[in-house]
């Protein structure tokens, strides 16, 4: 039995579609189940549904063998897991945004973000002295009401930014979802994991996979 940690929310549907395209028989009720643990006996798979930010944690501790996690989460959490495959789904990017793209005033501008680690690494590389403020959501609010000068967040279409009168001031890096693997499972369950990687990468690379394999 292989346990797979799946991110709830945005990435979930795309991830399920990818698995189905790779030939995994997942029942229709899979998509809107409220269960947190779903066993698919026929495929010898167990799915656990976690907050996207927590997926690498489950995988690092080995309670899940594999998982699907955004590169944003990987950069933020820096977990000891294998990043085996770029699934090329849920594409977006990490960016800095603010009310205007002029220079930031002040000695130590404040940066609001869900990704304190990413933000701090980015500004350190830029040689800029900033103060990081950790928020858990609705990051766009921070510059609007004066909590922060800039935000660091993921951008997919840019609509949320535009609607709130914010503009992107710097691009940090592109983000897609990754297939991640626990270091021990990668060795002890290598056959089943390699098979999964092969099937997924075939789909990602755009090849069709025989349903009966």
């Amino acid at each position: 039995m292989l346990t797979m940690a799946m991110p709830k929310g945005r990435i979930f549907e795309e991830a399920v579609e990818l698995l189905r395209n790779a030939g995994y028989q997942l029942p229709p009720e899979f998509d809107d189940s409220r269960k947190l643990i779903i066993d698919i006996e026929e495929e010898n798979l167990r799915f656990i549904l976690a907050k996207p930010m927590d997926v690498p944690t489950y995988v690092e501790h080995g309670v899940a063998d594999v998982g699907i996690a955004g590169k944003d989460v990987m950069l933020e959490e820096e977990r000891n897991v294998y990043e085996v495959l770029d699934l090329k789904i849920s594409g977006c990017y990490l960016a800095v945004a603010g009310l205007s793209d002029g220079p930031i005033k002040g000695v130590a501008p404040k940066i609001a973000t869900k990704y304190p680690n990413v933000a701090s690494n980015y500004f350190r590389q830029q040689g800029e002295q900033v103060e990081i403020i950790k928020l858990n959501g609705s990051i766009e609010l921070a510059p609007l009401i004066g909590l922060a000068d800039r935000i660091v967040d993921i951008v997919s279409t840019g609509r949320t930014l535009t609607e709130n009168g914010l503009m992107e001031t710097a691009f940090i890096e592109p983000i897609t979802s990754r297939f991640i693997v626990n270091p021990v499972s990668y060795r002890t369950k290598d056959a089943i994991i390699d098979d999964m990687v092969e099937r997924l990468s075939a789909v990602v690379e755009g090849e069709s996979v025989d349903e009966n394999r």
Binding site: Y82, E83, V84, D86, R178, P183
Partner: peptide
């Protein structure tokens, strides 16, 4: 353990 980065 970043194989994606390695390949890229």
């Amino acid at each position: 353990k970043n194989y994606v980065g390695y390949r890229q």
